[in-house]
Amino acid sequence: MTATHHAPAAAESGASATERFKSDKLATVADTPKERVDLLAREVLSAVHETIRRHKVTYDEYNALKAWLIRLGEDGEWPLFLDVWVEHVIEEVATEHRQGNKGTIEGPYYVPGAPERGSRGSVPMRDNEPGTPLVWTGRVTSTDGTPLAGATIELWHADADGLYSQFAPGIPEWNLRGTFSTGSDGSFEIRTVRPAPYQIPTDGACGALIAAAGWHAWRPAHLHVKVSAPGHELLTAQLYFPGDEHNDDDIASAVKPELMLDPAPAEDGETVSYGFVLDPAA
């Protein structure tokens, strides 16, 4: 199966990410105690007030901020903005207690329910899917070294054009998205293709911020994973490739040394070995 596609506009991507958040995450948000809201809201506003005073922010700059915030909402880019510039700190705080593998941000492009592929299989992909073939092997264990049979690995990533299925038009629904399980010894083997680096959408409010600040919009190439097993904490991570020019200045600040792969050349593409150690649930 083949398909042609183009990079989605910020509004398209933002709308998809917003709807996905509403369907997958909104229902799980518990009511936050008033005391917690009061504490966090006051401290965030206090930090904003201090920035205004310290830098003598003018009314023109204040109005520029208002205009940008209005556009951010109109473009539907709140999920993108928060995932790119805020989530990495939330993830850091949420997982600082872990003794097993380090994780990183989920980002806006996760979709649950990807096709099951067993412990050895390939992600769904198009005929002649562009990109270097990649065979990934590894094991999932607990922190005490016990192999975790039947652990689940959800994998998703961008294609060779830096686009994600279900968030860009013209790509088959589950392209480069799969769910894998580990064997009796905790092992797995996944066949996919090496993804490409990509820029986050730049024609919307987030792109306007990037341009105004003189930043770049690039994310290094990466594989997204969610790894889970009964009685253990869910691990959400991204795995990166050495030599990418944006490993050191990722726009989302999500790269960690522990998440770097070490690919080796193979007869048909590359191979990589990388496993996961999960923390027992408290």
Rank of each mutant, 00 (worst) to 15 (best):
L134D: 10
L134P: 11
L134I: 00
L134V: 06
L134G: 04
V135G: 01
V135I: 09
V135D: 13
W136S: 06
T137L: 01
T137K: 14
T137R: 15
T137Q: 14
G138S: 05
G138W: 00
G138I: 06
G138A: 01
G138Q: 07
G138Y: 00
V140A: 08
V140L: 04
V140H: 08
V140M: 09
T141Q: 04
T141E: 07
S142W: 05
S142C: 05
S142A: 14
S142Y: 03
T143K: 01
T143Q: 02
G145Q: 05
G145A: 07
T146W: 00
T146E: 10
P147R: 00
L148H: 02
A149M: 00
A149I: 03
A149T: 00
G150S: 07
A151G: 05
A151S: 12
A151C: 03
A151K: 05
T152N: 09
T152C: 01
I153M: 07
I153P: 09
I153R: 05
I153K: 06
I153N: 07
I153V: 13
I153F: 01
I153Q: 09
E154W: 04
E154D: 14
L155I: 12
L155H: 12
W156Y: 14
H157A: 09
H157L: 08
H157D: 01
A158V: 10
A158R: 15
A158E: 10
A158P: 00
A158L: 00
D159V: 04
D159Y: 02
D159T: 10
A160S: 15
A160K: 13
D161Q: 14
D161W: 03
G162A: 00
G162T: 06
G162M: 01
G162S: 03
Y164A: 12
Y164S: 13
Y164K: 08
S165I: 02
S165M: 06
S165W: 01
Q166G: 03
Q166S: 10
F167H: 15
A168H: 03
P169N: 15
G170I: 11
G170W: 11
G170M: 11
G170H: 12
I171W: 05
I171Y: 05
I171T: 06
P172V: 09
P172R: 12
P172L: 06
E173F: 07
E173V: 07
W174Q: 13
W174L: 03
W174V: 04
W174P: 07
N175Q: 14
L176D: 14
R177S: 02
R177A: 11
R177W: 02
G178V: 01
G178K: 08
G178H: 06
G178M: 05
G178A: 07
T179Y: 06
T179V: 09
F180S: 10
T182Y: 10
G183D: 15
G183V: 09
G183P: 14
G183T: 11
G183Q: 12
D185Y: 03
D185T: 13
G186N: 11
G186F: 10
G186M: 10
S187G: 13
F188H: 10
F188L: 12
E189H: 05
E189T: 15
I190R: 15
I190H: 15
I190A: 13
